[in-house]
Amino acid sequence: MSDHKFTRRIFLSGAVVTVTALSLTGCTEPKTQLVKIEQAGAFFNPDDLTLLNDIAEIMIPRTGTPGAADAQVAAVIDAMMMTWANGATRDLFSNTLQKIELMAETLKGKPYSSLTLKQRQSLISEIDVRAFSDEVPDYAEGYKRLKDLIFRVFYSSEAANADYVPIPGQYRGNLTLDEYESLTEAYSYGG
C-alpha cells in the first residue's frame, strides 16, 4: 500500500491558488508487482493512473535512491493536466496511454495489467527505443513528451534532490570531495 499526498501552488492567470490534490492509494498485485491505483485523480481515471505510475517507475525505478513512484510523479502529472496542460496535450497523453495498452496486447499478447514486471519493463524499453528511432511510430510524439515530463517532474522533486541546499550562504569553487560533501551535508535539507 502506498499513500500519495501533496500540496502544490498553482499558477493560473497570474493568481496563486493553493490546492490539495487527491490522496492516491494503491495496492500492489503480488503476481505482477503492479501498484493498482483505486481512486480517480483530478484528470486521469484509476486505470490511467495505474499505468502512468507504473510507466514512470519503470523509467525511473527505486534503486538505492527513490524512484518515480516515491516522488509521486503520476500524481503531480495528474494535477498538471488541470493546471498546465492544454486540451491538445490532455488528449495526446490520454491517447498515448491507450496506445501503450494496445502495444501490450500487440507485442506481449496480454493486457498491460496482466504482464509481469519484467514483461512490462521489456515493453516500455521497446517502446522507448522505437520512439527515438527513425521509424517514428504514431505514438512517438506523445510518448516523448510524456517521458520528458516524467523526467522533469521527477528530477525537480524533493525525492530526487535530497542533497539540495536551499541556502548555501556562500560560494566555494575549489573544494576537495570531502570538503564538498561535508558542506553539503551541513547545509542540505537532510543535514
Partner: peptide, 16 residues
C-alpha cells in the same frame, strides 16, 4: 523561499 519542487507546474508556464 520555495524549494525547486514547490515551483508551480515544475517551473512550466500553462500551455493555454
Amino acid at each position: 523561499m520555495l524549494a525547486p519542487w514547490e515551483a508551480e507546474n515544475a517551473g512550466l508556464m500553462p500551455e493555454s
